[in-house]
Amino acid sequence: MRVAGPNRRSVLKGAAVLLGAAAAPGAYAQNQNAVRLIYPFAAGSGGDTMARIVAEKLSAGLSVPVIVENRTGAAGRIGVKAVVGAEPDGTTLLFIPNPPVAIYPHSYPDLEYDPVRDLTPVSLIATFDVALAVSSKNDINSVKELIAWAKANPSQANYGSPGAGGLGHFFAVMVATDTGLDLKHVSYRGSGAVMSDLLGGQIPIAVVPLGDALELHRGGKARVLATSGVERSPLLPDVPTMKEAGINAEGQGWYAVYAPAKTPADTVARLNRIIVDGLADADTKAKVLRLNMVPRTSSPQQLAAFRDADSARWAPAVKASGFKPQQ
Rank of each mutant, 00 (worst) to 15 (best):
M242K: 09
V130N: 13
A226Q: 00
T284Q: 06
V208C: 08
A286K: 01
A164Q: 06
D110T: 13
V257M: 03
A157S: 06
G192P: 05
G47L: 07
A126K: 12
G14D: 00
A305L: 10
V318L: 07
V224P: 14
D281V: 04
V80P: 10
S107L: 06
G61Y: 04
D310A: 14
Q32E: 14
V288I: 12
P88N: 08
F171R: 15
Y159D: 09
T72R: 09
G278K: 10
G90S: 06
A282S: 04
G165E: 00
L19M: 14
K184F: 09
L93C: 03
G166N: 13
A176E: 11
W149T: 08
A43C: 00
G90N: 01
G90H: 02
H185N: 10
L214D: 09
A55V: 08
V64C: 11
D110V: 06
A51W: 02
G76D: 09
V143P: 10
V3F: 03
P100W: 04
P316V: 04
A86N: 04
I140F: 00
V208R: 03
A226F: 11
N31G: 15
D110F: 10
T49M: 05
A43E: 13
L62Q: 00
H106A: 13
A315L: 07
A34E: 12
T92Q: 08
K184R: 09
A193F: 11
G251I: 05
L167H: 15
A22V: 03
Y39I: 05
P240Y: 10
K184C: 07
G90D: 01
Q327V: 15
E250R: 15
D139A: 14
N98Y: 06
T284Y: 03
L58V: 06
I96G: 02
P325Y: 04
A22Y: 07
A86T: 11
V276Y: 04
Q327E: 15
P100S: 04
A133H: 08
R71C: 06
D212N: 11
M293Q: 12
V288R: 10
G20M: 09
V130G: 07
L146K: 07
P240A: 02
Y28F: 09
S228V: 02
S228C: 03
D178T: 08
A152Y: 11
Y159K: 08
G160F: 09
A24N: 02
V194N: 05
K57G: 12
